[in-house]
Design a binder for these strands. Structure first.
Lengths: 229, 229
DNA sequence: CGGCAGTTTGATCCCGGTCAAAATATGTGG
DNA sequence: CCACATATTTTGACCGGGATCAAACTGCCG
């Protein structure tokens, strides 16, 4: 972790107002780690001993019901903090975080949170802005689930993914981590069967193009229309 | 507002660690207001110029979709802060807040938020604890909506209400503000028809007892079972 | 090449939404 | 205090979106 460069953090919102030396201090307290896709960064209910910054890859935040149903509530793109239970006065993680692709992240002990907030101007406010955005996002999810049909929800789920983790490719925008029909169904509160049917139909109409564990949105605009202006 | 007593705030979490004189300072900057049931405290999208503390009554947080569907995401009980957009770096309210009953609340200009956080120990951490709780709550809503059937969702909606705003009465626990079938349907993502049918059935079985705009849960335990252990 | 993980497609069923209308409260003005 | 207007609740009939059940198909990895 000595190899980490200050320029890695400098452009990220929580650190953007900081001096080079402050970023160095922060980096020196961090430990970095790499995980393979599918491995958990932390589990729901575990003691919240650290908080995290995703450097590369995508993290999926999930909950599992007592009946075993899995629900995906959020995807975290590279560059964002996550697992920030300490910021919300919680001593245990409220959900499980899984590497959606191979990931690289930093982490700090929860005990330094207070120090970061006190010592580094802009750190707190930028972090809480992130919290606000996520709250907003979950709020929208609730509204969607209450009022939209499955087709619209799936369309929006895909759009959320391409907006957040989309990569331009020849024939459209590709979701840049492996994703299955099952994953999409867990994001939209449906079944993989319905997702498969819909994706097939969309592919026939030239809206998307998908291979195994890979989805490319070829006509985002029409997908937006489907999702409901 | 000169008539407000320090003892009003002293027991509330955001202020519990403060001195009498600090609470006096806070009160002196507040303005208080009373609103009738059904009136909006603030509207979604409006410039977030103030933040609020509910002294009495219940506030309902809602969103309205472009199609006109109304979705209730949260109920705020007396004693809690709400409309805390400033805490999350937002300059506009993300949802509309409506008085569910006659309400009494204090408010402060958003500009003093920073001062409160800096000057009053415990204020920030307690507030963010509230935010954490609400995030958690919305998270559960998403999981519910994705995996539970209507009957379970309605059962849980009622339970949430009695837990938060329940008043013991002779034959059970009453939701202490006026609430219609329509309101319950907006909390659970259903229709008033389904709610009515279910409530009738439950009344027949002695689970609840309801009059116009009034619901009393007479057998909370069986309702919990219905909602899914 | 065997086997597993992921995908597709068909057939069937039922929960809960939609449409429709009546019944019951509450409020209001004369 | 009554009559009429309005808000809320109840109930019935019907139907359709999507879940569920079932099975075959297609890469892909070792």
């Amino acid at each position: 972790m000595q190899s980490l460069d200050e320029s890695l953090l400098a452009p990220l919102p929580p650190f953007s107002q900081l001096e080079r030396t402050q970023i160095r201090e922060i980096l020196d307290q961090a430990s970095s780690k790499r995980l393979d896709a599918g491995v958990a960064v932390f589990e729901e209910g575990a003691s919240a001993e650290r908080f995290f910054l995703l450097l590369d890859g995508t993290v999926r935040v999930i909950k599992i019901t007592p009946e075993g149903d899995q629900v995906t509530s959020l995807h975290i793109p590279a560059g964002q903090l996550f697992g920030i239970a300490p910021a919300l006065g919680r001593d245990t993680y409220p959900a499980t975080a899984i590497a959606a692709s191979e990931v690289l992240f930093l982490s700090w002990p929860a005990s330094v949170w207070g120090k970061f907030v006190a010592d580094y101007p802009g750190f707190a406010s930028e972090t809480y802005k992130t919290v606000g955005t996520r709250l907003q996002e979950m709020h929208s999810r609730i509204v969607e689930m209450s009022t939209q049909h499955v087709e619209q929800r799936i369309a929006r789920a895909l759009l959320r993914l391409v907006n957040q983790s989309g990569k331009r490719v020849g024939d459209g925008i590709e979701i840049d981590f492996p994703i299955t029909r099952q994953d999409v169904s867990e994001m939209s509160g449906t079944t993989l069967h319905t997702v498969s049917r819909l994706l097939s139909a969309w592919e026939k109409n030239g809206l998307v193009s998908s291979k195994r564990k890979k989805i490319v949105v070829t006509d985002p605009h029409r997908l937006v229309v489907l999702g409901g202006a």
